[in-house]
Design a protein around this nucleic acid. Sequence first.
DNA 1: ACTTTCGGCTT
DNA 2: AAGCCGAAAGT
Length: 413
Amino acid sequence: MDGEHPEWLPVDWKVCVRVRVSGKKDKYYVNPSNDRKFNSKPEVLRYLQNAEKDLKLRKLNKVDTEKGVAERLPSGWIKETRITRKGGKTRRNLCYIDPVDGRHFSSLQEVKRYLETKNSGKAECNEDDSDHPSEELGDHCISPTAGAEGFKLIDEKVDETPSGNVKSGAAVENINPPETDASGQIRKEDDSKAEDQQQEKKRKKHSKWMNGLPRRSSKRLARVEADPPLEVKSCSRAAGARLSDKAGFDTKEAIEKSKLSGKTEVIITSENFDKQEKASTSSPLGDLSSAEDHECASADLKEDEKNDKNINSSLNNLFMDPCIEFAIKTLTGAIPLQDVNKILDGPVASPAQASTSSSVPPSSDIWADPCFEFAVKTLTSEIPMEDDGSHFQISFKQPLSSSGATGCNTTVK
DNA sequence: ACTTTCGGCTT
DNA sequence: AAGCCGAAAGT
């Protein structure tokens, strides 16, 4: 409350000076009409500037409240706009009032939540609404009090926004005179609406996602797919290998292993072979990978998994061809010629194999393959070699190990 | 939610 | 030093 009265300040206004503890002086201005204080001249001026236009409406009220129908909300809901002014600045806060219990909500989101909760609590939403998947799922049901029907925020927004008279009056910053207030309100509403819309949209989306079991299910499915695929793949591969390889399956595995593990391969492979013969159709790799493999019921699956883990895709592809597999295996010595002969003879002479391995397809297919037959014949008859086929091993092994097996060897070693 | 106070920047 | 503004604190 202090002396001089600036020219720019209305006569009835008061000028006060506040001295801070620090000694700093702050001059503030008091509006007698509402005892409102302004820390600076600009604030006062702004206020006055607005006040001139706005004064009529404001007059007594610090806070103006404009009530209207919340079109977006179920009928009965009240949309209240509270206009607060500080200094020259005007604030407009939207507020939604529940006609039933008079609860106030600062945003449509809150209202939505409230309605949703209320709705969910009271009664489950009729699935009738489900027709509109994209729409506000819970919203419809939500409005216990008023018709939830009209609760389409988006539509309303669209409608309302255009109606807004966005007059140029807004030029004065936030402070909007009465007229501008309207526009300002509209603006705010629009903004809030826009936000709400976005949020709602987001929510809707989320709700869709969330609500829609399908999404969850899809997620799950996706997960399921993702998880199982591994196993399935392995199994399927194994199956595929069986189907395609049949006779060559053993060789395939042995070969792969041999490539991978190098020296050890041979030993392993031999073991595998024995086992294979014993087990007839069981895969040798299973033994090799036995330590790792316990997942799949069948040894084949185990083998496949191992393959997946250890073998490069390229190698896999290469060995997919049973002919190549068999040939390589035979050449490398993974398969003793005796075994080869057995195998060769097997289909013809020993029906036991076929019988024992019900799951394993008939070896006839393999023999049907000219490649396979050619390879076998070539290896067995045309090329002179000793029973053990040591020559072959030596001659072919080196190149193989050097070239194709390098990566594997390194890994193994 | 609103008001008051304080710190800091600009003039 | 005064003025102004925004943030923080208080009610």
